[in-house]
Each structure stands twice: as structure tokens, then as C-alpha cells.
């Protein structure tokens, strides 16, 4: 009797959820070893299930396992590490590993966009803010998870629900002729210069699609970003007129500043 892949995945996620629950930072660190063991077991089991039931051998399969392992392990460390700066750096590692997975799917443009936007801009800003916000060691709210049970339940139930559907999706199975699965390759690149050294890249294809089929979405994103910029400008404080004398601030008796009448 063969068990369906969905149930195997549910089991894997249950084990992984318990492991991550035990790993989440809390006051007493008694169950960390058990949590690490469970999480590693779930990771290994997930990779085995993927290898046996879904992926099969391919020329880049080894890279997939390496980068998937790095991404998952780093993602777990993002939520379990007690120090926020390290969490943010593990997030950078997740982003880089996922970008590598995208390169394996020949989605080079998406991969490098992910790195430029997330690792290069957004997370640097996060790290900047975290470093400035916490200069006196670790705060209590960082060393203890606030709602470990609810968080783990919500996250892993969601993941299991999504992964359980994978079995029923009509995904293209890999073969020797086309070892790459996924939707990216089904976009046919048009007008690419043919040559011996030219791999079929997808920057041109993505650009064509974004500028024709999805142009409304693109414009809406632009409007949204513009609104965000205007909001940031409006929120970012009052202007100090340079050519006017500054208001004279008076220091009161108990050391607080008092605004003059």
C-alpha cells in the first residue's frame, strides 16, 4: 500500500512544527536539543519525500537540495534566533538561497531582482534600524517568543495546506529532455539573439510581459509606490525654516524642555 504524498507531507510538517515550537526562544532553554533534532529530522524527511516522490534526478538536482536546505534552515533561524541582528542576517541568507533556487529555474531576472531589492535595499534598512534601536543588549521581547504555539500552528498549518495540494497540481514532471520544471520556462522567449554562447535568458521576456499583458498592474504598483513616497514625505516631520530665527527653548527646573508661550 502506498501512502499519498500529501499525507507524508502533513506528517513532515507536523514534526517540523513541533521542532520549531521547541526551538523558539523562551525563558528556559531546556528543550533546544530535542527541537533541533526534530527540525533536522523534518528537514531531512522533507527532502527525501521531495526527492523520491516529486523531483527525480536532473542535472541541477544536487544544487536544488543544497540551496533548499540552506534556505529552510536559515528561515528557521530567522524566527528562533534570540538576537534581532542575527535574525535579519539569516533573512538575507534566505533571500540569497531562494535567489539561487530561482536561478536553477532559469528565472535569473527574478533572482537578481530579489537580491537587489530585498538583500541590497530593504534588509540593509532593517539592519540599520535594528542596530540603532538596540544598543543596550537584548530586550525581553526578543529573547522570548510572544505567542509560540499560535504562531507555529498558523504557519505550519498554512504551509501544510499549500504543500498538500502539490500532489494534485498538473505540474510538468521533469524529464531528461527538459529538466527544468515550473512556469517560467513555459514563457517562450521571443526575439532573443541566437548564438552559441547565448543562454535563453528571460529579462527580455519578463520585460515584454510586464509592459504589455500586465501593464495595468505595473502602473498600479507605480501609483502605490508614489503614494507611499508622498506619505513618507508628509510623515517625516516638520521643516525647519533656515532663514528664520529658531524658537528659543527653555529648560525647566526638572530638566524638561518647555516650549515658550
Amino acid at each position: 500500500m502506498t501512502v499519498s504524498t500529501s499525507y507524508l507531507l502533513y506528517l513532515v510538517f507536523a514534526v517540523g512544527g513541533v521542532g520549531v515550537y521547541l526551538l523558539l526562544p523562551r525563558a528556559q532553554r531546556s528543550a533546544r536539543a530535542a527541537g533541533t533534532l526534530l527540525a533536522l529530522a523534518a528537514l531531512a524527511a522533507l527532502l527525501v519525500v521531495l526527492a523520491v516522490r516529486m523531483l527525480g534526478p536532473g542535472p541541477t538536482a544536487g544544487y536544488f537540495y543544497v540551496f533548499a536546505t540552506v534556505a529552510l534552515a536559515a528561515a528557521v533561524r530567522v524566527v528562533t534566533h534570540p538576537r534581532p541582528v542575527h535574525c535579519a542576517l539569516y533573512f538575507v541568507l534566505v533571500v540569497v538561497a531562494v535567489a539561487a533556487l530561482l536561478v536553477l529555474q532559469r528565472a535569473e531576472f527574478l533572482a537578481i531582482a530579489l537580491i537587489i531589492i530585498y538583500a541590497g535595499a530593504i534588509l540593509v534598512t532593517y539592519v540599520f534600524v535594528i542596530m540603532l534601536a538596540q544598543q543596550r543588549g537584548d530586550a525581553v521581547y526578543d529573547t522570548r517568543a510572544r505567542e509560540p504555539l499560535l504562531g507555529v500552528l498558523a504557519g505550519f498549518v498554512l504551509m501544510a495546506a499549500m504543500a498538500g495540494q502539490v500532489d494534485r497540481l498538473p505540474l510538468p514532471r521533469p524529464s531528461a529532455a527538459s529538466p527544468f520544471t515550473g512556469a517560467v520556462l513555459s514563457i517562450s522567449p521571443q526575439g532573443l539573439p541566437a548564438g552559441p554562447a547565448q543562454l535563453p535568458g528571460n529579462t527580455l521576456t519578463v520585460g515584454q510581459l510586464v509592459m504589455t499583458k500586465y501593464v495595468v498592474v505595473l502602473e498600479m504598483t507605480g501609483v502605490l509606490l508614489l503614494v507611499a513616497i508622498i506619505g513618507a514625505v508628509a510623515l517625516s516631520g516638520k521643516r525647519v525654516p533656515v532663514d528664520q530665527p529658531p524658537p528659543t527653548w527653555v529648560v525647566g527646573k526638572i530638566g524638561k524642555e518647555v516650549k515658550p508661550f
Binding site: I112, G120, A121, L199, G201, N202, T203
Partner: peptide, 12 residues
């Protein structure tokens, strides 16, 4: 294919 973007991304 993403030559320049690769340089921008890694340099970031």
C-alpha cells in the same frame, strides 16, 4: 543574461 544587474546586485 542579467550581466549588469548581477554586478549591481552583488555589489549591493
Amino acid at each position: 543574461d542579467i550581466g549588469l544587474l548581477y554586478i549591481l546586485g552583488v555589489a549591493a
